[in-house]
Design a protein around this nucleic acid. Sequence first.
DNA 1: GGTTATTGTATAAAAAAAATACAATAGCCA
DNA 2: TGGCTATTGTATTTTTTTTATACAATAACC
Lengths: 248, 248
Amino acid sequence: MQDGPRFRLPEKEGFIEQLSIDCVIFGYRDRSLHVLVPKLNFRGGLSTLPGGFVRQDESIDEAALNILKGRTGIEKIYLEQFQVFGDLERSTGPFMRDIVRENAERHGENAGEVAWLTRRFVSIGYYALVNIAKVVPVKSEIDDSIDWHPLEALPAMVMDHNKIVAEALKALRNDLDRKLIGFNLLPERFTMQELRELYETVYDRAFTRSNFQRRILDLGVLERLEKKFTGAANKAPYLYRFILPDQG
Amino acid sequence: MQDGPRFRLPEKEGFIEQLSIDCVIFGYRDRSLHVLVPKLNFRGGLSTLPGGFVRQDESIDEAALNILKGRTGIEKIYLEQFQVFGDLERSTGPFMRDIVRENAERHGENAGEVAWLTRRFVSIGYYALVNIAKVVPVKSEIDDSIDWHPLEALPAMVMDHNKIVAEALKALRNDLDRKLIGFNLLPERFTMQELRELYETVYDRAFTRSNFQRRILDLGVLERLEKKFTGAANKAPYLYRFILPDQG
DNA sequence: GGTTATTGTATAAAAAAAATACAATAGCCA
DNA sequence: TGGCTATTGTATTTTTTTTATACAATAACC
């Protein structure tokens, strides 16, 4: 039998019981989408979405940001709430029961205090889209590792986490230009080609270059800046940036 | 000082704590939208959305249906989950505290058992659209009355319930033809004019008759039945019904 | 059987989207 | 320096979709 978890489970004081948050962090680089998946330090590793619990003194949006920061090191990004997962069977499997039992063996003193984790949980899903090159995930003390996995080759995750990712992707595609999710993602100044490649990756289809440019510019949310030096033997592309809406 | 509540508050055993569900039931009749609002039996009446709590042995979708049935008598309809409301301040006002205090004065014996209700709650919003003529709301024992209120003239409700209605309306408009929310609403067999009047009411705008008919028929979800006898001195309209998707 | 109001559908006009064409240009190289 | 090439930005053409308008069908009345 392998080691039990080397981390301490949280005690219930200060948290809302039976309510959790799971974050689907889509990472973009080189025309492909990845999902950030920590591996719990437990029995050689269990893949889970970065999730956690809601403190009594924070809103659910704040909780999502705090959970994300604590579990991945990522902060100051826009997270979008997309769906609640509340089936009965979703969290009644052996997953948390085993963790709690082995945690109790190792850290006997707080055994009774962590039994709350074996109960049924309702989980609120949040997603974000970030630039892999701009973000450095840092594993938390409860995880062994944290890695980007290609969307098409995700590991089997605990409970219904693979389903949560599938629903998050639907929501992302639904929201991409309506909610300007790209804000998190691109460098402050980017070319039209970089933006188009992002769209093509998220929707997994091609967009005609000329029409894409017109459609995006017609949204009226981009400001044209100076030209970008590429060194290539051809016309230099302009840089653009998002015009942030007035804070009125 | 008026009477305290004449009902017994639920004790926490069997429920998920700090998690609630609120239902926005849109009612349609005579080209206008209403919202079903029960009035709590408390201090002469407090308007609230029909809401309640999630039992340990039911999914959140089942909970929404059970809450709706218990609070309004309405059953067997399609409820759509649309958003979670989890701001810190949303449920920290005097609303529940007052109810619990006066409940304790009246029914002293279970006073300690209902303190859970004064805590901060996170609430999952569900909405539905029903035909006022086909549904008979029945007030529950915790309410004094239950009434349809025109969408444009809703009473001030407790906590953030007016905001929840506003968000539900956005979701309804977003989903109406994508999710065929009309299923709950229309009689089994209906005319194209009845369907169009519904759309015009929900979106609060006119649709050109001929174009509406083509657009809806092109969706491929309606089956044409026999003509309807109207008695009017003009061409009789066909009846249509929704083709239910295969249950495979 | 003519009249009237309304329905179902066809056609025309307008708008939007997609495909294509073409001019501008940054650096290379003769 | 001036042609060459690859890529960008935009204009134009083509197609599709949406909207507006026209018109034939018809149920009950007189």
